[in-house]
Design a protein around this nucleic acid. Structure first.
Length: 782
DNA sequence: CAGTGAGCGAGCTTCCGCTTGACTT
């Protein structure tokens, strides 16, 4: 094959493959795999005294790729830089130009927003040069983020604890979660009563109508009085209101809305949504999954229109163009949609891939369908002598339209509408209740964020980008600022009063309340870090900081402002604040440290704070002769509300409970929480036990349970050497020997039939093999 | 779906946005 005259460079390898097919043999298409150059990884790498000039390097894992690109570029007559049109894409093109040493006369910059043949051919016919103002806007963004991140983080290391981090995006994400938690703590739940009833028209027993009282009642006495009043009155149908409703479909998915809907409808965490979508994209089933655009290509719209017309008829079709409303959207790609709208079932797809694909496909198709038409009937049911009015609503779908394909779900599933057979009711018709029930409810605290609802909020504030939503959520969890809640809630009692056959009865029921399972809850560390940052750096933590700075970036991109002047303006205010936060002293206590009192035994001060390994109790003062003593807080305990007694109990470990099978049983607190130790074995204590009150009996139960679990996972042992065990683990069977684990060679069907000699051979071979290279060397695909 | 099981000090840690791998024992 002769060398193609043209080299096209795009960002994504999957994109490269598709485009190569459109362009034919004169074009070779390669991928840059995102950025090829960045600020140095380990050091600040911004020369503050030289106009904030950035010091770039090619990361080690990109060296091979850059060499390959360089060779291909040298051979080509023309190099087409086809990275995305957004700020980052423009910078990628510029870095490629610089690093590959391209010549202006043989370089073209092209952009397209859709991967269709027409769009690409059009782009090739309309090349331009690199937009240096836009590149500067990216450099400003990059440098600002490095300054904020690399100056704030060390302040946290010094003032609170090493390895912490802060940044323009992650710190605001944590702030959202912390402030929501504060709202929840300040919230006082108030009881009230809701009344609902079932009525039937006099003389028509088959026709039951469910109706709700529109007003809340304040307390039980009021509820009881209301039911008393209902006992003997004559109800009748009052006003009947019928009006049409139209519902329009939602736009096709962006990254953020896909993450939200996959979370609500499929229960996917955002990281799972992204990795499943990545595979769909790589296999050519969907368009690019990291996008902030709701735009669809003309070709996609026409394919979907054809499909809708053929399968459902013309009246279901309504071609629509959507416009983004989200802050800071850069719209370099299409919305997320199926590549071939007619494909419903994917060959070789996992169930997860198929589910996500179906969601994407239906949402995209529905976006080009007609409004749903609904008839909403509201019937009032009243009685003389009753102040309040019951209303029964009935939504009948007259024309389903887009609902045939897709119905969006909402965050609060409380609002489910129920259908009522209101047809046949006439004003003045006498009605009889069969049951009127007043139920005690409680005003709801604000909901904790889920991963997906946090993404939604971040997008609203313009914080983060489609490619960073999922990584940011995992960063703030890795840093220990935020955890996924595990609490299923506590039972809460509520009253119901029921009026039936002229008699009022009352009953107490329970529901689970206050669950935070799977939702984002701040840790002590998250709370204290946030308090620290908002106190010393209120401007950076401001919800509008990013939005304001984005306006500057836009002006830089338009050539109206010089990027390094803007950065200098920020730095002259920011940097002194960093110096101050680094050095300021506050009366002997560490930031966030709380005094609990004095140890009654020794008189030493007892306090709680964020220590080197997380929240700790400290007894004694660091200034005194004697070294202070430390004990970690347990899971579920908080710096915020731990008492002196609870804190002192933590020093009672390790505690000996007694003996079992001639060995001592002790309970202690370790790196991974409380555990029972017996016969050199460790058994974790589940969170529903209080380690300080654990009895010998309970400990023995835990030991026995652990033993049984261990037996289940042991596939076989060997008489020749009790130290060799064949175990069943998370990734399948493996060998454990001498505190090391060994994987089995491929293709072993029945591992339990392995002989001792075979097992020893696997161990010997694995030990003889050279240690894995630490750095991943960039592999070349041929 | 497991396993791990100290200690307040030496050195190191850290940002955001582009993009995929390699493949866990």
């Amino acid at each position: 094959m002769s060398t193609p005259k043209n080299l096209v460079i795009v960002e994504s390898p999957a994109k490269a493959k598709t485009i190569e097919k459109f362009l034919g043999p004169d074009y070779r298409v390669m991928s840059s795999y995102g950025h090829i150059r960045d600020l140095k990884k380990k050091t600040f790498s911004i020369d503050v005294d030289k106009d904030f000039s950035p010091i770039y390097e090619i990361p080690e894992d990109k060296e091979q790729l850059v060499a390959d690109l360089k060779r291909a570029a040298t051979k080509a007559d023309t190099v087409w830089l086809a990275s995305d049109e957004d700020r980052e894409g423009e910078a990628i093109a510029w870095h490629l130009y610089e690093v590959l040493g391209l010549k202006p006369e043989k370089t073209r910059r092209i952009v397209f927003h859709e991967i269709t043949k027409n769009a690409i051919l059009h782009a090739i016919e309309n090349p331009r040069s690199i937009d240096l103002a836009r590149v500067d806007a990216q450099q400003a963004r990059r440098v600002l983020d490095r300054i904020v991140g690399f100056e704030l983080s060390p302040v946290l290391w010094k003032r609170l604890k090493p390895t912490l981090s802060a940044g323009r995006v992650q710190s605001v994400a944590v702030r959202l979660i912390v402030e929501r938690e504060n709202e929840i703590r300040a919230f006082r739940s108030e009881p009230y009563y809701r009344v609902s009833a079932v009525f039937i028209p006099e003389g028509d027993e088959s026709h039951a109508v469910r109706a709700d009282l529109s007003q809340r009642l304040d307390n039980e006495a009021e509820a009881r009085a209301f039911l008393e009043a209902c006992k003997d009155v004559a109800f009748k149908v009052g006003d009947i209101d019928v009006h049409p409703l139209r519902k329009a479909p939602a736009p096709p998915f962006t990254t953020s809305t896909l993450q939200q809907e996959a979370s609500r409808k499929l229960g996917f965490p955002v990281s799972m949504t992204m990795s499943v979508a990545q595979r769909l994209y790589e296999n050519g089933h969907i368009t690019y999954m990291r996008t902030d655009s709701v735009n669809l290509s003309a070709e996609a719209i026409s394919a979907m229109s054809k499909l809708i017309k053929e399968r459902l008829g013309e009246k279901y079709l309504h071609v629509r163009a959507y416009h983004t409303s989200s802050k800071g959207a850069q719209e370099a790609h299409e919305a997320i949609r199926p590549t071939y709208a007619e494909t419903e079932t994917l060959p070789d797809a996992t169930p997860q891939e198929q589910k996500l694909y179906t969601l994407i496909r239906r949402r995209a198709i529905a976006s080009q369908m007609a409004d749903a038409e609904i008839k909403k009937t509201t019937v009032e049911i009243t009685a003389t002598g009753i102040d309040h009015t019951f209303t029964a609503t009935d939504e009948t779908v007259v024309f389903d339209g887009f609902l045939r394909e897709y119905s969006e779900s909402s965050d609060d599933d409380e609002a489910a509408t129920q259908s009522n057979p209101n047809a046949g009711l006439r004003t003045g018709m006498p009605m009889r209740y069969t049951d009127i029930e007043a139920t005690e409810r409680f005003t709801q605290q604000p909901p904790r964020y889920t991963e997906a609802s946090l993404v939604k909020k971040m997008e609203e504030l313009g914080i983060g980008r489609p490619s960073t939503y999922a990584p940011t959520i995992s960063t703030i969890q890795q840093r220990g600022y935020v955890e996924r809640g595990e609490n299923e809630g506590q039972p809460r009692e509520y009253n119901t009063l029921s009026l039936k056959n002229g008699k009022i009865s009352s009953e107490t029921r329970t529901i689970m309340a206050g669950a935070n399972k799977g939702r984002l809850v701040p840790t002590d560390t998250g709370m204290i870090v946030n308090n620290f940052l908002t106190e010393y750096f209120p401007n950076v933590l401001d919800y509008n900081f990013t939005a304001n700075i984005e306006e500057k970036f836009d002006e830089i991109a338009q050539g109206k402002l010089a990027w390094n002047k803007e950065i200098a303006g920020f730095y002259t205010i920011f940097h002194p604040a960093v110096d101050e936060a680094m050095t300021i002293k506050q009366g002997g206590l560490k930031f966030g440290e709380r005094m609990l009192g004095k140890d009654p035994a020794t008189g030493k001060p007892v306090s709680v704070k964020i220590g080197r390994f997380g929240p700790v109790v400290q007894v004694g003062s660091p200034d005194s002769e004697e070294k202070p003593q430390f004990a970690s807080l347990l899971k579920g305990q908080s710096i915020n509300n731990i008492t002196l007694e609870e804190a002192l109990k933590l020093f009672e470990f390790p505690r000996t409970l007694g003996t079992f099978e001639d060995s001592e049983v002790t309970v202690a607190i370790g790196r991974f929480g409380p555990y029972v130790r017996h016969d050199n074995k460790f058994v974790s204590i589940p969170a529903d036990f209080t380690p300080a009150e654990l009895t010998l009996e309970q400990a023995i139960e835990l030991i026995v349970a652990k033993r049984e679990a261990d037996e289940k996972k042991t596939l076989r042992t060997y008489d020749e050497d009790p130290g060799v065990v064949l175990l069943n683990g998370r990734f399948g069977p493996y060998i454990a020997y001498n505190k090391k684990n060994y994987k089995l060679p491929r293709g072993i069907k029945k591992p339990e039939t392995l002989s001792y000699e075979e097992v020893k051979k696997i161990i010997a071979e694995a030990d003889a093999a050279p240690a894995k290279p630490k750095r991943a060397t960039a592999k070349k695909k041929k």
